Measured scan of single mutants.
Amino acid sequence: NSLAEAKVLANRELDKYGVSDYYKNLINNAKTVEGVKALIDEILA
């Protein structure tokens, strides 16, 4: 998966839960796919 794909999928996942734009910005600023995954795990914990 590319970083861009990971960000799109992460933001879709956040949308399902009604997560605020603050967290979407964190996702969009992530530098690695692993970073995106770690943020998602933390946000949805």
Rank of each mutant, 00 (worst) to 15 (best):
N1I: 15
L39H: 02
N28L: 11
Y22P: 03
A10P: 00
N11M: 13
T32M: 01
V19I: 14
L44A: 05
A6G: 02
E34K: 05
N28P: 01
Y17I: 11
L44N: 04
L44R: 13
L39C: 03
A4F: 10
K37M: 14
S2T: 12
K24E: 03
I43N: 00
G35S: 11
A10R: 01
T32S: 09
N1K: 08
D15E: 12
G18N: 10
E13V: 15
Y22N: 05
I27P: 00
K37D: 03
A10H: 01
E34C: 07
K31N: 11
V19G: 10
K24T: 05
I40L: 15
L3F: 02
A30F: 02
V8G: 06
D41F: 13
I40E: 02
A45G: 12
L3Y: 01
L3P: 01
S20P: 11
L39M: 06
G18I: 07
D21E: 14
L14P: 00
V8D: 11
L39N: 01
L44P: 01
Y22T: 07
Y23G: 02
A45I: 08
G18H: 10
R12M: 15
A38S: 09
E42S: 13
Y22L: 09
G35C: 09
A38M: 12
N29W: 07
G18S: 07
E5H: 11
L9A: 12
R12Q: 13
E34G: 06
K16A: 08
L26Q: 05
V8N: 11
G35R: 13
D21Q: 14
E13D: 04
V19N: 05
A6F: 09
R12V: 09
A6R: 03
L39D: 00
G18Y: 06
I40M: 15
D15P: 02
V19S: 05
S20N: 08
N1M: 14
V19H: 07
L9W: 15
S2F: 09
D15G: 08
Y17H: 12
N11H: 14
S20M: 08
L9S: 08
K7L: 06
N25T: 14
K24C: 03
N1D: 12
L39I: 13
S2W: 11
V33F: 07
N29G: 10
V36H: 00
N1A: 14
N11A: 10
L3N: 00
Y17W: 14
L14S: 05
E42N: 10
V8R: 15
N25Y: 13
Y23P: 00
D41H: 09
Y17Q: 05
I27K: 00
K16G: 05
V36W: 01
E42M: 15
G18A: 06
K24M: 06
V36M: 03
